[in-house]
Amino acid sequence: MADALLRIEGLTKRFGGVVASDNVTLDVTAGELHAIIGPNGAGKTTLICQLAGEIAPNTGRIHFGGRDITALPVYARSALGLARSFQITSLFPDFTALDNVALAVQAHAGHSFEFWHDARRDPALRDPARASLERVGLAARADVMVSNLSHGEHRQLELAMALATKPRMLLLDEPMAGLGPEESIRVVKLLRELKSDLTILLIEHDMEAVFALADRISVLVYGRVIATGEPAAIRANAEVRQAYLGEQEAVTVPGAGHG
């Protein structure tokens, strides 16, 4: 496919005896929202970590925007426009929400070997950061310390930070994990808006959200992609039903936490 923005070829990652990624081959087309579903421990997070550059695969290649990024460090991939959010919230707890997002803006505003001017009063950083907070609905909490924000707010902030890097592609690792129904609806709405400007790889256990949002879905089981296709096809796929969707009924009880 010529217009694949992200192209994963034969990615394999072993942790001792566990094969977390088993010859994963996958294309994400520019502009699509591609969801990855799969049971706990299927290797979804491990896949994201390899795409982001935190974990080096044993074999396989990753191409982004036509470029082989398999050997690039994390920050260089971010510079190319690949942004991720974390399943387990990863923020700067001793800074305010606005500081957090402003750092993400700063990371993509040239080098930071600037030693003199107060970065917290720099509109070139603060204004886009505020806009990003606004977008996820956190504007009113801009000056609150992250350690004093709620879990739902942390999840929103995760998204705001990823967005603030002005990415071409978002890698979202369960952005709705642990959110209440109202907060989930808000995130679904946001993702729907983002879909028009961004390519998104979405990992999510909330099947309602996944089937509502995804252009295509890949199913990962024991590190292997057992099916890729449009939502209707995945829903109808017998192997998927057996391997995953059937047992998922029990898992998606509201409030059932995972990971």
Binding site: A52, E54, P73, V74, S78, A83, F86, L103, H108, S112
Partner: peptide, 8 residues
């Protein structure tokens, strides 16, 4: 997280 948002 710093590296993830793009800082070397």
């Amino acid at each position: 997280r710093m590296r993830a948002i793009g800082f070397p």
